[in-house]
Design a protein around this nucleic acid. Structure first.
Length: 200
DNA sequence: AAGAGGATGAACT
DNA sequence: GTTCATCCTCTTG
């Protein structure tokens, strides 16, 4: 079942971030369908989170996507190289998002390996926000695109897997040392025991 | 108009 | 542990 709008419109971006664990991120790009199970996420909140691009509800050309209604992709270029994929969360006007940091490859793994130029099946393939996007063919051109229909190129499915609270590990987010006290907030979540996580 | 720096990853020593 | 690839966005003047 493709995730519906209500899933994304919730106000609690931290809860949505946890709920995305165990869901399946699917893309259909260059005529090839690839997917993976989400194993690692991070929550970002525009209102009061200094690590968020839209901190203090700051609107710029780049952050405008985050203010849109939940259920769209927010994709931006990091360090001039990496395309980072986020899910926009919340009602229109609320700048919340969830960064997808890692997946466990599921569908069409050979295509994923080819995109990554890696022959083996190992975490390096899809564990990390930049390589995850590369594995699924996600680029900044997808910024603002809806996740709510399979007619498009990217969406998220629930395939009946439920990740229990005890199997979720919370930790501070990666690479946000500049965010002062917010840097310590435990808003990074990953599936315990999964090897498909960017860092232990 | 110019400059700094970033929600990273890979290849080094 | 360190370096650096590489480019867009935002800030400053």
């Amino acid at each position: 079942m493709i995730l519906q709008k209500q899933f994304y419109l919730r106000d609690d971006v931290v809860q949505v971030s946890k709920d995305l664990l165990g869901k399946f991120l699917v893309t259909e790009i260059d005529g090839k369908r690839t997917s993976g199970m989400i194993t690692e996420t991070e929550a970002y909140r525009g209102l009061d989170d200094k690590a968020c691009h839209a901190y203090n509800n700051r609107r710029t050309k780049r952050t405008e996507t985050m203010f849109r209604e939940g259920g769209r992709a927010y994709v931006y270029l990091c360090y001039g190289i990496h395309h980072l994929f986020n899910v926009v969360v919340g009602e229109e006007g609320v700048a919340n998002a969830v960064l997808i940091r890692a997946i466990e490859p599921v569908d069409n793994i050979p295509v994923i390996q080819k995109r990554r130029k890696i022959d083996k099946l190992k975490p390096q393939l899809t564990a990390g926000p930049g390589v995850m996007s590369k594995a699924l063919g996600i680029k900044t051109i997808l910024d603002g695109t809806t996740l709510l229909t399979k007619l498009n190129t990217i969406w998220i499915e629930d395939r009946g897997i439920q990740i229990e609270e005890v199997d979720i590990q919370a930790a501070p987010r990666i690479g946000v040392d500049y965010a002062e006290e917010c840097a310590e907030w435990p808003w990074r979540f990953y599936i315990k025991n999964s090897r498909w996580v960017s860092k232990k």
